[in-house]
Design a protein around this nucleic acid. Sequence first.
DNA 1: CGAGTTACCTGACTATAGTCAGACATGTGA
DNA 2: TCACATGTCTGACTATAGTCAGGTAACTCG
Lengths: 293, 293
Amino acid sequence: MATVRRFNRTVTQRVGALDDEYLSRGRPLGQARLLWEIGPAGAEVAALRARLDLDAGYLSRLLRALESDGLVVVAAGTGGDARVREVALTAAGRAEWELLDRGSDDLAQSILGPLSTGQRTRLATAMAEVERLLMASMVELAPCPPGDPRARSCLRAYARELAHRFDGGFDTAVSAPVDDEDLVPPRGVFLLATLSGEPVGCGALKLHRDAPAEIKRLWVSATVRGLGVGRRILADLERRAAEAGHRSVRLDTNRNLVEAIRLYRSSGYAEVPAYNDEAYAHHWFEKPLTPAP
Amino acid sequence: MATVRRFNRTVTQRVGALDDEYLSRGRPLGQARLLWEIGPAGAEVAALRARLDLDAGYLSRLLRALESDGLVVVAAGTGGDARVREVALTAAGRAEWELLDRGSDDLAQSILGPLSTGQRTRLATAMAEVERLLMASMVELAPCPPGDPRARSCLRAYARELAHRFDGGFDTAVSAPVDDEDLVPPRGVFLLATLSGEPVGCGALKLHRDAPAEIKRLWVSATVRGLGVGRRILADLERRAAEAGHRSVRLDTNRNLVEAIRLYRSSGYAEVPAYNDEAYAHHWFEKPLTPAP
DNA sequence: CGAGTTACCTGACTATAGTCAGACATGTGA
DNA sequence: TCACATGTCTGACTATAGTCAGGTAACTCG
């Protein structure tokens, strides 16, 4: 606890301030940050707003400033929606971006400079570890309509992964289908896990009328696997099932999904006889719920 | 390198932003930071200015704002100098400070919350390591008059340490004295190592007229020992000796200072016969210098 | 003592950050 | 087709951050 607090103050304040200083060479920090975030690949205005958490009006104004400095061009997007606008760096903007990139390099260099080779490796290892474990606390869970593009992207990744891991592949036509409407309150819920806006996991709950609640579509992206996100989604879904008055939840799974099976067992699930005829299932689990207060 | 850059951006930006958010609950960030920095123990205005790196006028205005909110009192210091003013928290200010302290706790809690016990220990270890290694790059080396209070504090710590580590203690009257004037250009130099303003090490160089340059008073505080600060001071002094036209440097040391002896050997120093009759010395070292370009 | 410093304060600024309400074009679902 | 939602933009603001040039009292040193 004390270590975390010390870290938050010293490292964060000091390195953060240096980073800002390197970033804002002659240009207001807000503009520099935005320019950096746009990057050589360009970006959609909406994405920038989400990533930097800026007011729409303020962002628009910043873009106008960069545009009048000849650093970026804002044009209608290539996608179908003509409201969505895309920002791209001009040649001058790219040059400016490279400068910021160099600043970022310089800062890293100034940190690594005074260290011996052994210390550098240790620092890199420790930094990677901190970053990874901090990710866990940055992951946010929230219900989300299953039709949402981020939800869709999770479900596609989920299907892709099953196809890859199941012995005979995975065919959505063979598996028991789940209607979107079943995953919308009051008949169920779809939970989305995001890491700074990006979808990194999901889980769904079907609240059956005359049967235990059922958990479906539990998936966690490889980038955050092993950080307890799956367990959090599972616990959240169980809580919602209990609040809806259910006394138990159940789920089915494939024998190849060993981490999932381990998660279920360690979360208090007990194996039960098959309660459905899901083609890809080898194990069926059930867990009693403590009624919501 | 890439790891360091990633770390600087993600961890620093995100945790830093959260930290600021927790800190500024209803109060402007600048004021909150100042209030936090004053702390229950109070502080001198000059110290605050140094720690937060603020303009004198701006700081004064911030203090006035806190004062008119009844959170602090600014009064002439207890020390001799009536120009120096001291800030102390009032009861209300202390309450507000506790709130900020709680915010800092909450943030730490929100980071640790989603982690398992094992992950928490790993995070703490990694954070401590990052912080410690980052210290190394925050240490700044600069020449400094040997009469400076920070230099004095280093020299006192140096004498204290020798008294503690030498077999029969250390008496400045017995050791060969070094005049302050010998450590001021052009006759020598006194180098001070600071970590965010605090003195954490020193080293001195005497440029003899008809003899090799001589290194004296090399000391590194326990807080940053093992981070290569001693080696940096040594290298810097050697560079200055070479620039002054010297072809070699030498130094004497006590057999109990084993880390120092290891440092000298690994830095290219070779043991030589005694070149002086320093009472506390057991070893004499010399290193040839490559002439400055 | 008196010239020069130092530590802090005040007034008068400018720039940056951020907010809010509405305008407008585009897309969506009944 | 119409009502409503969405994505972006503009105008009109306020607040915060930060700078700079004096000013005053207290200290220091010859």
